[in-house]
Design a protein around this nucleic acid. Structure first.
Length: 499
RNA sequence: GUCCCCUUCGUCUAGAGGCCUAGGACACCGGGUUUUCAUCCCGGCGACAGGGGUUCGACUCCCCUAGGGGACGCCA
């Protein structure tokens, strides 16, 4: 048997460091056994998926030195590798399940489902589909569906019993079927849900081992059931520990830089990032702390994965990165610095900002210090302003931070628009409103244009500086946070000009 | 709330019944080298969540409790 693994990112935003982590382990495991590693794009959420995000993911993984034997960019014998291009395949497979009586048409409206769930929750029950359409006559249902009536296709799930399956690292796991919902397989737009697509694709693409985050453990019964319904052999399941924030919650951009782009922009070397990821939940059989991907391949053993939840902590990554940087020859060092800060693209975005503000080249570096380097350390007094109290500055920073948290695309005009909207809603002059943001981002009340700066820095770095500024101002207590959140929601929900 | 997973220094981890007086790394603290700083070297601080079993012997196996996390979407 040839080992085949895959990474299956969803192109709905920035390339996530967790994607790189899972991809690394999948690739290393496959290579260790002389197998193949596949990249598959899970873009069945048509609304949120973008080609731009897909390109960023492929680019970011490439920067890290990860590569794949088959994928949307390199092709392969089991394509297409973009799920949005496999719609017909899922439809055909859904029909098989329908015909065999393992699935059924469902005509329930989202409104009805919401109501049902609300009732169930109120009664203290598990929110679940109530089986309303399951009893429909299959022929009648099929005619309604082909007649154009809005519908989804759901899978049938046994009412009782337990689903027992094997996890390579955890042994046997048993989950009662009572916990499993009659999952939608084909959505109203004709695209499959994750659960449908993943089973069909993993089978068709001959995936032998599924290495993925442990957030998926609870949906394995759905997958096992589908494998049974299709009469297929399920692959080996191996659920990896989830990368965590310092507070042990699942790693999230709200608390941490999660974009691979951040690490690239902040001046980490890809080898260091890979090395660090390789030490999350895994260790070399000897005492080696510093090792490359090839060394990892040579020594890799799935059983050496530990299950504790590793905190993604920048301190050790920084040390590791320093190790790699010092090992560079002066020639290599020059190349790296040049590529990092002064490559043509980067320069091209900087020049329009600085050229008109420059009389002598000696003026150049002080202008861009906060863009190329760490912003200076702040003090609370930096936020003193004639028109703006400290409390208002905090509020502004927090609101803007929340707004940025919710942004999927990081473009100058979008940033500008978003900030402008809040400023208006809060009733501040844009000039005053921007002051704390200038301080937070550049460390100065006067700097290069703010939104260009933010765009250049990237979302993660910008958010990081806003968070830091908030801390400098004494932080926000849990209680304050709740109050602010309420006010913020009210502010955002207010329709334009409704005041 | 229901179900599932997890639990060794602050952090990443080694440890697969006696090799453990629990090892290493980061961080932190102290000292040395260095015109400063950093690097580098030396030293220090520091953990088996708790309680029951099993065993001649438990960090290692089992059970319970506690704590943490995850899932409960026509998102993945």
């Amino acid at each position: 048997m040839i080992v085949r693994t895959r990474a299956a990112p969803s192109p709905t935003g920035d390339p996530h460091i967790g994607t790189a982590y899972v991809a690394l382990l999948n690739q290393v495991f496959a290579r260790r056994h002389g197998g193949q590693f596949i990249l598959r794009i899970e873009d069945t959420d048509v609304v949120r998926s973008t080609r731009a995000s897909e390109r960023m993911i492929i680019d970011a993984l490439g920067w890290l030195g990860l590569d794949w034997d088959e994928g949307p960019d390199v092709g392969g014998a089991h394509g297409p590798y973009r799920q949005s291009e496999r719609k017909d395949i899922y439809q055909a497979h859904a029909r098989v399940l329908l015909d065999a009586g393992h699935a059924f048409y469902c005509f329930c409206s989202p409104e009805r489902l919401d109501a049902v769930r609300a009732e169930q929750t109120a009664r203290g029950e598990n929110p679940r589909y109530d089986g309303h359409c399951r009893a429909l006559d299959p022929d009648v249902a099929r005619r309604r569906a082909s007649g154009g009536e809005a519908h989804v296709i759901r899978m049938k799930v046994p009412a009782e019993g337990v689903c027992a399956f094997h996890d390579h690292l955890r042994g046997t796991i048993e989950i009662p079927f009572a916990q499993i919902d009659m999952q939608v397989l084909i959505k109203g737009d004709g695209f499959p849900t994750y659960h449908m697509a993943v089973v069909v694709d993993d089978h068709l693409m001959k995936i032998t081992h599924i290495l993925r985050g442990e957030e998926w453990i609870n949906s394995v019964p759905k997958h096992v059931l589908l494998y049974q319904y299709f009469g297929w052999q399920p692959p080996v399941f191996c659920h990896l520990p989830l990368l965590r924030n310092p507070d042990r919650s699942k790693l999230s951009k709200r608390r941490n830089p999660t974009s691979i782009n951040y690490y690239r922009r902040a001046g980490y070397l890809p080898q260091a990032v890979i090395n660090y990821l390789g030490r999350m939940g895994w260790s070399m059989p000897d005492d080696r702390e510093i090792f490359g991907r090839d060394e990892m391949i040579a020594a890799f053993d799935l059983d050496r994965i530990s299950l504790g939840a590793p905190i993604f902590d920048l301190a050790k990554l920084n040390w590791l990165n320093g190790q790699y940087i010092r090992k560079l020859s002066p020639e290599e060092f020059m190349d790296e610095v040049q590529d990092w800060a002064f490559n043509r693209d980067r320069l091209a975005s900087l020049v329009p900002l600085v050229q008109e503000r420059t009389e002598r080249f000696i003026d150049l570096v002080p202008q861009v210090d906060y863009l190329l380097g760490e912003r200076r350390a702040l003090a609370a007094t930096d936020f003193t302003h004639p028109e703006l109290s400290e409390a208002e500055a905090k509020k502004i920073l927090q609101y803007v931070l929340w707004t940025f948290d919710a942004m999927a695309t990081w473009e100058r005009d979008l940033i500008y628009g978003a900030v402008q909207t809040i400023a208006k809603a809060m009733g501040h002059k844009i000039r005053d409103f921007l002051f704390p943001l200038f301080i937070a981002v550049s460390g100065r009340a006067v700097s290069l244009p703010l939104f260009d700066s933010m765009h250049l820095l990237g979302a993660d770095l910008t958010r990081m500086r806003l968070r830091d500024a908030l801390e400098v101002l004494g932080g926000v207590s849990k209680k304050q946070l709740k109050q602010l959140e309420k006010e913020f929601k009210a502010l955002v929900d207010t329709p334009e000009g409704a005041e």
